[in-house]
Nucleic acid binder design. Structure first.
Length: 162
DNA sequence: GCCAACGTTGGC
DNA sequence: GCCAACGTTGGC
């Protein structure tokens, strides 16, 4: 039997005006579409796997915060919004037979009762080390260490369900 | 292949 | 609203 890959952790950014944690609570699961950055594309295509855990982060928001968690339920596949000329993220250069852009599906685990705000994150040494906290960090998806995953659950006063 | 101009992201 | 930090584009 093949050796089981260890679960990995990620942080996905979204502007709540575009898609918020409440939208995910309502939808239960969603396509994480619209990524148009090659570094992030590579992660969605190659690295993000079913069962991986995801922090949902609100960017450009009041407050900016980690607002909940989700899990990956479908690995990277073609982002069909790139093929739709009416879509905001339409990219005529992406060929359906050899797509440029990828997305994954995620499903809600929990919305934190107490979001962990960016200001909170600054006050914790472990949280402060997260990729999303580094100056100039613009990637909409970044890897998260297991220690960071646990620390943020503590800061949220939340359980980390299996 | 270089790099200046331009556009976008996203914190402050 | 400002602007730093990038990523992308296109002329050369």
């Amino acid at each position: 039997m093949a050796k089981k890959r260890k679960r990995q952790y990620w942080l996905f950014k979204s502007e709540p005006t575009a898609y918020s944690i409440d939208d995910l609570v309502k939808d239960k699961s969603t396509h994480w579409d619209g990524v148009r950055n090659y570094q992030v594309r590579n992660m969605l295509r190659d690295d993000v796997q079913v069962g991986d855990r995801v922090f949902f982060y609100h960017s450009n928001a009041k407050p900016m915060a980690i607002v909940g968690t989700a899990k990956v339920v479908e690995p990277g596949y073609a982002d069909h919004t790139a093929f739709d000329s009416k879509d905001k993220h339409y990219d005529p250069k992406s060929d359906p037979d050899n797509p440029t852009w990828f997305m994954v599906d995620v499903e809600i685990i929990q919305k934190f009762e107490t979001p962990v705000t960016r200001d909170d994150l600054k006050l914790d040494d472990v949280a402060l080390g997260m990729a999303v906290m580094q100056k100039g960090s613009r990637l909409s998806i970044t890897p998260v260490a297991e220690e960071e995953w646990k620390t943020i659950h503590k800061l949220a006063g939340a359980k980390d369900p299996r």
